[in-house]
Simulated scan of single mutants.
Amino acid sequence: MRTTASSTSVHVTALDGLVNVNSLFTIAVFVGLSLTTPGQHSLQLKGICDADINVARRLLVFEVVSFSFFLFSSLVAQGLKLAINLINSNDTDEAFRAHINLKVLRFGMLGSAIGSVMGCVFLMLSMVSVIEIRLGLLSCGSESAVRAVAALVTLVSSALLVYISTVFYAFTH
């Protein structure tokens, strides 16, 4: 099965958007990494609510895993774009009309989308650790930490649900 010229252009645009979003999330990963200073005190007045080294370690692991998924997703998307732009494209004016196997394109786009979703999940988990470092451990019942985590998990989960549903719809139609 081959793609048409108009659908190939749409795929390239979708891949561009995915790479751009992954780049923004990658910036968030590095901001999170900058917050892994040992011995940092939370904004809670109780010293027992301060995050220990294990929370900072968990933050670092989640950030690295998140970065890895975003990098995977971006590289797959960039590879697909490269294939679209090079395969069967004799003229640079025809870069968006290259013919590529639709099954390969769909599989690659699905892999890239899964990488982005997993990157978002681990970024969300790392942000929970950032919240615990800055606002106090959730186990201490810090009201501001609980509210921040609840808002983060609710909004990110909702957005991921919409994204996954859209990807599933696009993949099946």
Rank of each mutant, 00 (worst) to 15 (best):
E132W: 00
N85C: 12
T154C: 00
S66C: 04
S74A: 08
A151D: 13
F69Y: 13
L18A: 15
R57A: 09
L105C: 09
Q44E: 10
V117C: 12
S74D: 03
F67E: 04
L71K: 03
S139I: 07
A170E: 10
S34Y: 07
F30V: 00
A170N: 08
L18P: 14
I133T: 00
A77D: 11
A159G: 10
L45R: 14
L138P: 02
R57S: 11
A98W: 05
G119C: 04
S129W: 05
G17I: 09
G32D: 08
I84W: 07
Q44L: 01
S73R: 02
K81T: 09
S139F: 04
F168A: 15
S9Y: 06
L123D: 11
F168Q: 07
Y169F: 07
L86M: 13
S165A: 14
L155C: 12
V153I: 09
L161N: 08
G115L: 10
M127F: 13
G108A: 12
A51P: 02
L59P: 03
R147L: 09
V65H: 02
H99A: 08
V19M: 10
G119A: 03
H11K: 15
A148P: 05
D93K: 15
L102T: 08
A95D: 10
C140Y: 06
F62I: 07
F25E: 04
S34R: 04
L24H: 10
A113E: 02
P38I: 05
M124R: 09
A98H: 04
V19D: 02
C120F: 02
T13H: 10
L86F: 14
T4G: 13
G79P: 05
V162A: 02
L138W: 05
R58I: 14
L123P: 13
D16I: 06
V21P: 07
L155D: 09
L123Y: 09
L160V: 11
M124C: 09
L43T: 15
V76F: 07
P38L: 10
T36D: 06
V121A: 05
A151R: 07
M127K: 09
D91K: 14
T13D: 15
I53M: 04
G108Q: 06
L15Y: 13
G136Y: 13
L43E: 14
D50F: 05
M1D: 05
T36R: 01
A51N: 05
L102D: 13
V153G: 00
V156M: 00
V149R: 00
K81A: 03
V31S: 11
R134M: 01
N20F: 07
A5F: 06
T37I: 12
G108I: 13
V156R: 00
L160D: 02
C120G: 06
L160I: 13
L137K: 01
S139M: 10
S34T: 12
S6P: 06
L138H: 06
N101D: 12
V146L: 01
L125Q: 00
S7Q: 12
D16W: 02
T26E: 11
F72T: 03
R134T: 14
C49T: 12
S139N: 06
S6I: 04
A98S: 13
L152R: 01
L71S: 04
A151G: 07
